[in-house]
């Protein structure tokens, strides 16, 4: 196994705290065309600020969500509405699980 070492520490930022993701940033990070992201907004999966696509500003957490929605559609052969529903239910499960764990419960 080859090893490549690059030990200069990189400047990093927390994506989610950077609330200034534009449509172009999101397309770039998800490696998809803008149409796919616009579909996600139309389905209510992503909720950007701003009126028209060119001015949309997405919260950093949108990246995670957009990628999950795209993967679910591709891998499970479901449509956008199905993926949106799955994501909402997964969010709810996540919230409940975290709460349960914080209270010391098992899941």
């Amino acid at each position: 196994m080859n090893t490549e070492n690059d030990l200069t520490p990189f400047a990093t930022c927390i994506l989610e705290e950077q609330t200034q993701l534009t449509l172009a940033d999101l397309c770039r990070a998800c490696a998809v065309h803008a149409e796919r992201i616009i579909e996600l907004v139309d389905a209510g999966v992503l909720e950007p600020q701003g009126r028209e696509p060119a001015r949309w500003i997405f919260a950093g957490a949108s990246l995670h969500r957009a990628r999950a929605a795209l993967r679910l559609q591709r891998d499970l052969d479901i449509d956008l509405a199905g993926a949106a529903l799955a994501l909402e239910l997964l969010d709810e499960i996540d919230t409940l699980r975290t709460r349960l764990r914080a209270m010391g419960g098992e899941y």
């Binding site: 196994m1 080859n2 090893t3 490549e4 070492n5 690059d6 030990l7 200069t8 520490p9 990189f10 400047a11 990093t12 930022c13 927390i14 705290e17």
Partner: peptide, 12 residues
Amino acid sequence: ITRERVLNITIP
């Protein structure tokens, strides 16, 4: 092949 890549990162 699987290559290993070692990175030094700053955890914010």
